[in-house]
């Protein structure tokens, strides 16, 4: 089981309910593979809008994964769809 993704970035907006849900859902998904939020850079757009701008992130919450080839993939939403989140993270148990 290899983590296909590079370092993860989670864009949130302060302490909004969706941001909290996204953080919790991501922590839960990482936990299943023995990881935790320590591997994730959390960026608060309210305090660091420039970073969101640089990444082209206009909707939030958003999870951004940088692939080794330099491209990035984005998953929008509060990450409540666990199947999709796991697939995005690239460590689907099926593999």
């Amino acid at each position: 089981m290899t983590v296909q993704r590079g370092r993860l970035k989670l864009f949130i907006t302060g302490d909004a309910p969706r941001s909290r849900r996204a953080r919790a859902n991501l922590a839960q998904a990482l936990e299943t593979v023995g990881s935790d939020l320590g591997d994730v850079d959390e960026i608060d757009i309210l305090t660091a809008p420039k970073q969101a701008l640089d990444h082209g992130i206009f909707a939030s919450p958003a999870l951004v994964a940088a692939a080794p080839d330099g491209t990035t993939d984005v998953l929008y939403g509060d990450l409540s769809d666990m199947d999709r989140l796991v697939r995005f993270l690239g460590f689907s148990k099926a593999e």
């Binding site: 969706r18 420039k50 929008y76 509060d78 409540s80 995005f88």
Partner: peptide, 24 residues
């Protein structure tokens, strides 16, 4: 602000982040 080509969605999102960017 073009959405990435392979954009995916998991659950609800909002534009609070966009407002923050526009404000700045």
């Amino acid at each position: 602000a073009r959405p990435q080509r392979d954009v995916e969605k998991s659950g609800r999102f909002d534009l609070a982040g966009m407002v923050a960017i526009l404000d700045a």
